[in-house]
């Protein structure tokens, strides 16, 4: 194993570790769930992918380790945004409060505008009831 490869692996793994540690500190110290979700997805994208690339570089592209590392990278890249989005939406719908310093809530503004609009028309078109508003 040549020295160059070791240095490249060390640098890539160090980049990944720095991002992982900063994301973990962010999850510990951020004020509400939504900020923590943002930290978590940044951590995974920028913290895990350099480490996986380090593994690919260190073990060679055709080894079993590199293949598994690439599978894990593809899984993380596809499923992580979906899971973060689902968690954020579920947290909002479950009524988890925002931080006191948060300045905008676009969903609340949109819901208020829709309610005002429905008040004007007053139920003459019942198919306007949106999905997700009924009670089950």
């Amino acid at each position: 194993m040549s020295t160059v490869i070791v240095v490249v692996v060390a640098v890539l793994a160090l980049v990944g570790l720095v991002f992982s540690v900063s994301g973990a500190v962010g999850i510990l110290r951020m004020p509400d769930v939504y900020c923590r979700i943002q930290c978590s997805s940044k951590t995974i994208t920028m913290g895990a992918l350099p480490a996986l690339v380090a593994l690919v570089v260190g073990e060679g592209f055709e080894s079993a380790y590199a293949a598994r590392a690439l599978i894990v990278a593809a899984l993380l890249l596809t499923v992580n945004p979906a899971a973060s989005h689902a968690l954020a939406r579920a947290a909002y719908r479950a009524g988890v409060p925002m931080w006191d310093g948060a300045v905008r809530d676009d969903v609340k503004a949109m819901k208020a505008a829709e309610a005002e609009d429905a008040d004007h028309r007053h139920g003459d078109r019942p198919e306007d009831r949106r999905e997700g508003e009924h009670d089950d």
Partner: peptide, 11 residues
């Protein structure tokens, strides 16, 4: 909240 725990557990 539960969401905080899920986020941290995922990471």
């Amino acid at each position: 909240s539960v969401s905080d725990r899920i986020v941290a557990l995922n990471t």
